[in-house]
């Protein structure tokens, strides 16, 4: 029975009806069984706009229960408006405890970052994905990209990396950096900075990726190898900063740059607010 009240009309627990949740769970199971493979699913209209996390929200809504503790981040921070809005949504429709602490969360929905605090067994990281197809910008046709995945024909992806080095002297791709999952499928890690790519490799947490507008779900099960594509003589590298965080002094975390006065003075702080606060 519908048991949660939104704006005067009855909605089911966690917004989606149970049939839809079952359908999404089946897609998730398939995605877990074939790591990195994009599973089409019957994405629903959500009360939040496409491109604002509808894929991640549907995944979260399908797996969340009253025992869960939910953390939502956007750009690494819990207090960015979109993160606040999604957290509020679930607090309201799923009657679930929320947290900003990475360690306390059982489900972490994220846009554009992986938390700095290492994840552990039993945690689920839900990514919001705008364009699930890593080959899309190289080949616009779905029928063709599907064939390329099916046949593991990935030369074109390597061509794009080659071209980047030829033009810039290095692989200039900085976020949404393509990875090879379990030695089989090339996957888009969603627009996380490449800084976060190493955290995906053999992570003890389950990674679920939801693309609402494109209606695809894919997954990386715990402890699965995830390799960032590169060349032997141009190995994958992550961003580094000469500065350290102005608040907690971290030299290891991803730093956001802020302009703090009209003279253009810069300040660097951790993008992961929970990590930063826990160190202060």
């Amino acid at each position: 029975m519908p048991d949660t009240d939104i704006q005067g009309s009855a909605y089911n627990y966690a917004y989606l009806d149970e049939q839809t949740k079952r359908m999404i769970r089946r897609a998730i199971l398939k995605a877990v069984a074939v790591p990195g493979y994009q599973v089409p699913f019957g994405g629903r209209e959500m009360p939040l706009p496409y491109g604002w996390g509808t894929g991640g929200i549907q995944v979260t809504a399908a797996i969340i229960g009253r025992d869960d503790t939910l953390k939502v981040i956007d750009q690494g921070a819990d207090d960015t408006t979109n993160a606040v809005s999604i957290r509020r949504f679930f607090a309201r429709v799923a009657d679930v405890a929320t947290t900003t602490r990475t360690e306390e969360a059982t489900i972490i929905q994220t846009r554009h970052r992986v938390p700095e605090t290492p994840l552990r067994d039993g945690q689920i990281l839900v990514f919001q994905v705008p364009i699930p197809e890593p080959l899309r910008m190289l080949e616009p046709r779905e029928t063709e990209t599907r064939t390329l995945h099916a046949l593991s024909e990935y030369g074109v992806m390597q061509v794009s990396l080659y071209e980047s080095i030829a033009r810039h002297g290095r692989i200039a791709k900085t976020y949404n950096y393509p990875v090879m999952v379990n030695g089989r499928y090339i996957m888009s890690p969603s627009p996380i900075p490449k800084f976060d790519n190493p955290k995906l490799d053999r992570s003890p947490a389950l990674q679920l990726y939801g693309a609402g507008r494109e209606k695809r779900i894919y997954a990386v099960p715990p402890h699965t190898p995830v390799k960032s594509l590169d060349f032997d003589d141009h190995p994958f590298e992550i961003e580094t900063w000469t500065e350290s965080c102005a608040l907690c002094g971290s030299k290891e975390s991803f730093l956001d740059e802020m302009i703090v006065d009209d003279a253009g003075k810069r300040l660097f702080v951790c993008s992961d607010t929970d990590y930063c606060e826990s160190r202060r």
Binding site: P49, Y50, G51, P130, T174, P191, P193, K194, R213
Partner: peptide
């Protein structure tokens, strides 16, 4: 409409990269 307007969301991590 959703995808065009999602450009209003913060992208500062990607932009930082």
């Amino acid at each position: 409409s959703g995808f065009v307007q999602h450009l209003k969301l913060p992208h500062y991590v990607d932009f930082q990269s």
